[in-house]
Design a protein around this nucleic acid. Structure first.
Lengths: 220, 220, 220, 220
DNA sequence: TATGAATGAGCATTCATTCAT
DNA sequence: GATGAATGAATGCTCATTCAT
């Protein structure tokens, strides 16, 4: 009726909307997994409506993949910021380990999302190649530092970088992944800083004592 | 009326029905988690109808808890069968480690169910105390064998059994839990027996080299 | 295994079980109606199992009818105990009215069950003749007392006993039936004894002033 | 694009859909009560699907409350249309009474819905305040007309409007509410116009003779 | 007479998704 | 780009009832 009045509810903010959906989805997927998450909760959490979710990501599965890609890309970027060129081999391995353990501890969402994807046997990521690239940065850095240690004669020389990486990863991943059942069964509280520090200390000794061990123990 | 009268393919079989539901539920929960599982699939898998599921377990949540209790009780029983009284400390630790790693590898359902429960932050198990008892058997055996090693002077004496147990558990758990993303990213195939054996060997050296290390490495 | 030991859990008590079911069913039907009632709650309330309910009453519908029959028979019996042979017509009408109003007030279950049966348009009672007999005792007594009043010249003589009975019944029934919405809308509290007494007083004046009215008011 | 473009049998019709659900729900709730009603029958009756019912009303309970609110609002509106400013007190009371009795007779759904809500002891309406407003219009009109009658000396002056309203309401409500059991027991047929007219006549005399009674009868 | 086990149809409700504007 | 309305196939769960002992 009125002539102009086009205040034009200028709410249009494509990048913002997309990002808010992604953030809300990460929270929702992290606490219930793909099947436990609800699209209406995600939309509400993002301050938009369900339709936009489909507009930007096509489907719930697509959104899950986008979230997974996002958290893995973040990990990648963080890994790339780690510069070990000027430290000793021991210090280098220690830094790699601490980086990984701290990252898992500070990003439990990543752990949960990976667990959830593994629960379904990698159903979603299998057809997508996005996951395949992500290992490299940290594994490369670790390989370098292990090589330097071997050449300097301070590390044993039968260490496979990928397997060693798996060991490091497992040590940090497990306590985050199983936080709740570990607390229920062993009374282990990951949130207690003192406890967390002790654990980090122990684990560091673990990996270093292995790397510096010269005569292999009796095999099994 | 007849004296024997057994053997007549009885339709009444409470124990059997209950057990068939439990087994079918374990399969279903293991591939989709609590939220991905479907009660009608469980009922069909058990050769009964949905109603019986509620008759015996009250709810889907109750059934999940029963399954979790069942797999943990099975683990408990298996742990109890491990007799380490007549072996050396090194051999004892090795056996404990191998038992745990083999058990995880052979019972991926257990790993998935624990992961799923942790995904929901222990929501179901929190109010139930059933989970609390399960640590004991293997942890006790491990504590004994560590003590013997310390007294014999072959193991370092600053090892906390619970933390050491966590390390052992994490090493075996992680590779089973993340089987699919590990294969996608590192190309690591847990199903390859040679690969599995190598991994077990590495991990064993890993823990033993730590235990036998006398002078602690520089702390961080 | 043991020879005698036949302590014979002599819980058999057919009359008792039947009666307990009936009582429990009355409570359950009274608060939720036929459709809101749950057979398992009835069985639990009666301290028996659902199967016995079917053993004694055939079906849920049959049980509802049995309950209805029971409360109506009780009303019948109570009506029969009212002896008006030696009181004045006014006193007789007053006693009939008070009997009915008090009975409704003290037996809200009867009111609810009748309401529920009427909600379904008499579906259950239609095919059963059990309901048809129940009016008589009180209506007969009322007819007698009205006749005596007419003959004595104290009551107007154009009163139809059945319609008058309906008026009496409606006055007492309505306030019990609509107890909750009346409280919500008019703030009328039937549980307050003073309020209940005043209401009874008013209603009594109502019916007596009508009966004693000689020149009819202008019809409509 | 086109200028007019209306009239095109639009599939989008929020108001219409909402209203059709409400109407279908009223029919369904009226014949079976809250517990007897089936949401799929309501959806089918409304020409939509069950989902929309929850979209607009949140739950079955919410829909019942909306229906109750709707019929009570309709009653309210009808009450407001009653203008008694220019009639005599007797005529005024008569009109109020007839309005109420006719309304109940012509809207048995209202009676059934109120009965059903009372059956559950006002469970749904208790937490909602929507019911509380509805008394006023007719009660106010009645209060006015009674006052005028008292001042003119044609009505007794000890009449409480709210109680008198309850009497009027009860007389009309009871015969509608108990239509089926009244027919089964007293053979009273409310659908017979002659019978209905006689009943109305009797009830009118009933209330007027009370109002015009000057010397109160002996109390009890 | 009494009871635990079993049944299948049906219940209210929620799901991810698409349509129309 | 953004939104409210609409969909129908499931979802977990409950129902009154019957079977077998």
């Amino acid at each position: 009726m009125e002539p102009v009045m086009k205040e034009q509810r200028c709410r249009r903010d494509p990048e913002g909307t997309r990002h808010r959906i992604l953030t809300a989805a990460q929270e929702e997927f992290a606490v219930g997994g793909l099947y436990g998450a609800r699209v209406d909760r995600i939309a509400r959490g993002a301050g938009t409506n369900e339709r936009m979710l489909y507009y930007y990501f096509g489907s719930k599965d697509g959104l899950f993949l986008a979230v997974l890609d996002h958290v893995l890309t973040s990990l990648n970027n963080a890994e790339r910021s780690l510069d070990l060129s000027s430290v000793s081999p021991e210090e280098g391995v220690t830094r790699v380990a601490h980086f990984l353990w701290d990252y898992y501890r500070d990003h439990p969402d990543l752990v949960r999302l990976l667990n959830d994807e593994n629960l379904r046997e990698g159903k979603l990521t299998r057809e997508v190649t996005s996951l395949r690239r992500i290992v490299s940065p940290l594994l490369h850095a670790l390989t370098d530092v292990l090589d330097r240690g071997k050449q300097a004669g301070v590390f044993r020389d039968d260490v496979d970088p990928a397997k060693f990486y798996t060991v490091l990863s497992g040590l940090g991943y497990y306590v985050v992944s199983n936080r709740f059942t570990l607390e229920a069964t062993l009374g282990m509280d990951l949130n207690d800083p003192a406890e967390a520090k002790r654990m980090r200390q122990t684990n560091t000794e673990f990996v270093l004592s292995y790397l510096k061990h010269r005569e292999p123990v009796a095999a099994v």
